[in-house]
Amino acid sequence: MTTLAKRIVQGGPAGVNVRRYRIIRNIVLVAVTAIAIGGFLIDVPRIQILEHTARNLYFHVPMWFTLMAAVTFSAYHSIRFLQTGNLVRDVRAREAALVGIVFGILGLLTGMVWARFTWYQGTNIWWNFDPKQTMAAVQLLIYGAYFVLRSAIEEPQKRGRIAAVYNLFALVTVPFLLFILPRQAPSLHPGADGNPAFSDFTAPEMRWVLYPAFIAFIGLFWVLYTQRVRFSLIKLRLHGDSE
């Protein structure tokens, strides 16, 4: 490894603090394992039609939260890139979107499987136009377009600027879905039109797994994201371009 690359990996103004990274990575590894074990072994109250699928709560909901965290991260770094023109910000916005896509797809799949084998048991319905499901799908489409747009521009500074503009511009239209979608189709999620609120049916013992699961999944996002950022920063320093 060249000294330059070593310096980037081991820290510095734009790099990542490796000791802190290792500590957090180990905590996240333990936490995710504990969530997986606890999620499947700790007893859950049997609610009508949910039964054991209620365990999906520990995985589906944190994934959806992680997507929202990733979107916030990506948008924040896009704004900062437009302010500073520092390519490190562009790398961070891109990698947050990339890792966010992974969690978004997982959240979408767990949600679809959950609905199919509980509410739609015995039917052939996989896609149910649930507002939250559609919003996640739209955000994934936007990120797909974001990466297509990036691949169409050669010069790094220009690519960063245009991509940041698109990232923010497309994002402002997403909240409208919150307003318009619930009128199109009823939601399966708690707290929406007549469904019981989240706190009404969640047994206290489930929260002992659920709340740590939020932290564990966002931690997992952080680990993957910082790995990707370090990798891209090395490429950026060595080639002058991170893609």
Partner: peptide
Amino acid sequence: MLAAIIARTATRGPLLPVLVFPMLIPLLLA
């Protein structure tokens, strides 16, 4: 806005629908 964006890309033409459709879903529903 998106037309201004694609004028900056190398391929220019066919990109616009890909970029604009995800944004237009709320408008289309309404």
